[in-house]
Nucleic acid binder design. Sequence first.
DNA 1: CAGTGAGCGAGCTTCCGCTTGACTT
Length: 773
Amino acid sequence: MTENLVIVESPAKAKTIEKFLGKDYMVVSSFGHIRDLVRNNLGVEVEKGFNPVYEVPDDKKKVVAELRKLADQAKTVWIASDEDREGEAIAWHLIAVLGLDPATTRRIVFHEITKDAITRAVESPRQVDMNLVNAQQARRILDRLVGFELSPVLWKKVQPSLSAGRVQSVAVRLLVDREREIIGFRADSAFRVTGSFSGKNSEGTDVMLRAECTKKFTAEADAKGFLEKCIGSAFTVENIVVKPGTRSPAPPFTTSTLQQEAYRKLGFSVAQTMSVAQKLYEGGKITYMRTDSTNLSMLALNTAREVITAEYGPGYSRTRQFKTSSRGAQEAHEAIRPTYFDRKETSGSNNEKKLYELIWRRAIASQMADAKVEKTTITIGMSASPVNFTATGEVVLFDGFLKVYTESSDSNNAEADEKTILPRVDRGMDLTAETITALQRFTSPPPRYTEASLVKKLEELGIGRPSTYAPIISTIQSRGYVAREDRPGEKRTIAQLTLTKGKITRIEKTEIAGKEKSKLFPKDIGMIVNDFLIANFPDILDYNFTAGVEKEFDEIAAGEMKWDKMISSFYGPFRKTVDDSLSTRARMTGARLLGNDPASGLPVSVKMSRFGPVVQLGEASPDQKPRFANLRRDQLLETITLEEALTLFSLPRSIGTFEENEMTAGVGKFGPYVKHAGKFYSLRRGVDDPYTITEERAVELIREKREGEKQKLISEFGDIMVLNGRYGPYIVHDKTNYRIPKGTDPHKLTREECLAIIEKGGKSKSTRGKKKK
DNA sequence: CAGTGAGCGAGCTTCCGCTTGACTT
C-alpha cells in the first residue's frame, strides 16, 4: 500500500523528485499526454457544441493501466504535471481516465527541483484550473479542425496524402516567400575602395594602416576616376575618435537558441541537437531541454556565482536574471543549464561532450561580467577630394564573459565580424598611400533558411512550441514541401583596379556566388500547396494567425471567454471557405506553357504530375503520345526556361565504351546512373552529372563499385554469404539476414558455424514487408 | 528493383503538443 502517489510528466524528473520526497512517496511518470482526440476521424462533434471525442492511444494503454493500478492502491494522488496549458490538461485527463476524485486529488506544481521547492509545493496543493484546461481544449480542437478540414481539400485539389496545418503551412510559407524574394533579386554591384597607408608617428615608429573609403562607386569609370585623383593627393590623419563600450552575455539557452548555436558552432541538425540533449537530460547532466524560458533557479544562480568566483575571480561574476522575450512563452521550466555547474566536462559520446560544454559555457557566461571594449575610428582626409577613408578597430580592455563564450551569428560575412587592433597614430600625421584598390562587390539576396534559422523565425512569430520545433522541420520535409540541399553556386567575374606607385592596373577575378550548404529549399509541391492555401485560406496562412488565436486562448484561460464560443466563431466562416473551395476551385498543377520546340514545333510545357514535376513535349491525342522528362532537383516549375526544359530530353545518352560494352548515362528510380553491360552504377550526388559525365569518370565509378563489392564480401559458402554491412558483419541465407554472435571473428566463420547460427535462429527482426503503423 | 505521366473509384491519407523508447541491413 502506497501512502502517496505523485504523477509527473517525465520519468527523469520522477527519479530526481523521488529522492527528495522520501519513502512515503512514490513518484511515477505519465510520459506526457495520456489521452487525445480520436485518431481516425475528426474527433470533434461539431453539431454537439464541438464536443471533443477522446481516446487513450494504443501506445499509452500500458502506461494508463499501470497508473490506474498504482492510483487505486494509493491513499492520496498528487498530480505534478507542468504549470502550463498542456500540463493542466494532462492533470485533468489523468483525473478523468484514472477515475480519481477531483475533490481529493491534489494538483501541485514545482517551480524548481530542490528539496525546499518540492516541500513547499506539497504544502500548498490546489485543484485543477478548468479555465486553463479549456484553453488547451480550444487549442487542440482548433488545430484538429484546421488540419483535418484543410488536408482533405488538398487531397482533392492538389494531390493525395498532403497535409496542412496552423503551424506547418506557415513554416512552408516562410520558405516559399523567401525563395520568391531570391528569385526576384537582381544583384547590383559597386566598387569598394580600400587603401594601405604608411607613416611615422610622433614616437618615430613606422606604422601601417588599412582603411576603407567612405564612398562607394557604382560605375567602374567613377572608381577609376577616383583612383586617378588619389595619384599625387596628400593624405592626413584628420580625426581620431575613441569610444568606450560594453558587451553583455546572451541569456542561457532555450530550445530554440540551443538549436541555433548547436547548428552554427557544431553543425548539428535540429533533430540531432534534441536527441543528444535528451541523452544528457536522462543522464541527469542538464536540466530539461524543451523550454522557452531563460529563467535560472536561485540554486543555479548561487552555484554559478561560486564556480565563476573560484575559477576566474570575483571580478568576473555578475548574477543576472533574464526576461524571457519570445512571444507566447509559457515558462513551465528553467532555461537549459548544467545540473552541476562545477562539472565543466562530461562523459559520454563525443557529441554529448561537445553539446554539454556548449551548454555549460553559455550558462556560465550568462552569469559573468560585461566585457569592456574600446572602439577607435580613425578618419583620413585627402587633399584632392572631400572623400574620406576610415579605419575602425576594437580593443578588449576587460574580457569578462568573453573569456568563456561568444555567440555566433548567421551572417556568412566573416570580414564584418573581424575586430582589428589599430596602430598608434596622431592627429595631423601625414600618410603615404602605398596601394589603393577598388574591388567590385555584388549585393547578396536575402539568405535561405537553415533548419535552425527557421526555428528562430517561428519562435519570433510565436508559432510552434519547444517540443515541436524538430517535428515541424521533419514534417515539412517528409511531405516533400521542402528539402535540405546543397548548391555548388556559380562563378562570376569581378573587376579590380589597383593603384600602386602612381600607376593603375586592372585585373579580373572570379568568385563563387550562390553557394549553399544544408539550406532549406522549397520544392514545387510546397509552392503549389502554398499558393493554393494563400488563395483560399489567407487568414490561416497569415503570419499573425497564431498570435491572434493565442490571445483568445489567453482570454479563455483567464475566464473571460467561453471556449466553445471562440471555436464556433472561427469555424462558421472557415467551414464555408472549405466548402466554397471544394466546389469552385480547379485542380492546381502548377502548369506553364514554355513555348515550342524549335526542332519539332511541338508545344513544351511543365506541370506537377502524379510522380513529381515534369516537362512535357507535345500534347496527348489518340494518335500521339507526348514525351515526358523529370525536372532536376535544382529546377523549379516556376523558373525553368524553354532551353533548360529541352535539354532534359537528352537522357539517356551514350557516353562511350568500356570492356567492349556501351555505357549510357540516365536518371532512374534511384537517381542518376551509368549503365554498363546490364549493370547500374549510381552517380555521386553533388559530384557527377548525367548530362556532362565523361567516359573516364564513368569507368572510374564502375571500378570503384567493383572494389567496394569485393570489400563487402567476407566469405561465401554457396547459398550462404558473410557480408560487411552498415551495422557490421552479418550472414545472408535465403534472403534473410542473421546476426553474428558477439566475440566471433566473421573472417574465421566456416560453413558449418554459419549453419549453426542460422539454425539457432539468431535472426535479426526484420520489419521488411510489414507495414509500419 | 534504374517507371511512371489518362481516368475510374475503393479505401486510405491529415493536425499540434506532451513525453520516451523501438529499431535499424
